[in-house]
Design a protein around this nucleic acid. Structure first.
Lengths: 133, 133
DNA sequence: ATAAAGGTTCTAGTGAGTGGAAGGTCAAGG
DNA sequence: CCTTGACCTTCCACTCACTAGAACCTTTAT
């Protein structure tokens, strides 16, 4: 399939897909006319990239995640270590996102129509105290 | 408190904090010596920024989220609309992140020691089909 | 007094795209 | 056959969100 189609299916722009090819994240086949040609498997990878990027992983982290996805050597210690580290990070992100959501919900519900300048909920918004990593 | 301290407490670098001030996200008081001076409330805001950024929200989105946080006019329709849109987005991110985690877990567990070139889990990695927005 | 640590501003560079020009390809209609 | 419009190609310049480093000032500890 052509790049426009792959873009639509993956949620990435065609420009971004070309850029990912440039930096070696995912190289596509070429049709006889020179057009890039994507398989469904490529589209899966692209969607995977779209998600991980939008969830705050860097391109380099996505490259590692993709290697879990594509690597024939999936049982290697390195790859497993990466996967485990990523899992930990994902769990942290999940916790933070959940907290953010709860706070926002509370804010929407409880501060509705409330004109008090110092809504008591505000102070909780920074999340629980924790030492910086 | 000085910027270094605020940086440590918020998880942002001092450079980033200065940058956020540059673009008008959060302006700090100044002490007599010219040093920036942060309150705990500022630190809450900074941590809030650190989180929302790391969870994939753009700086402009963070600016909106911060306005929920800081705005005295919290009951306004605009602000509430923003909050609701953000909540929807957060829920979507939560779902995606959960899916990513489950997939990664499955991959780590089930592909251990498995040298087959086409691990059947792989095909699931792109997530459920959905039409691009 | 002096050194180290931390603050200031400034300019420049990086990572991750995005926009637009200039041109090639393809399917449909006149 | 020719044109029109949608889609593809490459390339270069621009934006956004930092990040590094220089040059210099302030505070703290010895």
């Amino acid at each position: 399939m052509n790049i426009g189609n792959a873009a639509e299916k993956s949620g990435l722009s065609a420009k971004t897909i070309r850029y990912y090819e440039d930096i070696g994240l995912l190289q596509a086949d070429r049709a006889d006319n020179g057009y890039r040609d994507y398989s469904m498997s490529d589209v899966h990878r692209l969607r995977f990239l779209q998600r991980s990027r939008s969830l705050g992983f860097s391109v380099e982290e996505c490259r590692q995640l993709l290697s879990l996805y594509s690597d024939k050597d999936r049982e290697s210690a390195t790859v497993k270590a990466i996967a485990k580290a990523k899992l930990t990070e994902i769990d942290r992100k999940l916790a933070e996102l959940t907290e953010l959501r709860d706070t926002l919900r509370l804010l929407v519900r409880n501060c509705h129509g409330d004109k008090r300048p110092d809504c008591p909920i505000i102070e909780g918004l920074g999340g629980k105290d924790r030492v910086a990593a």
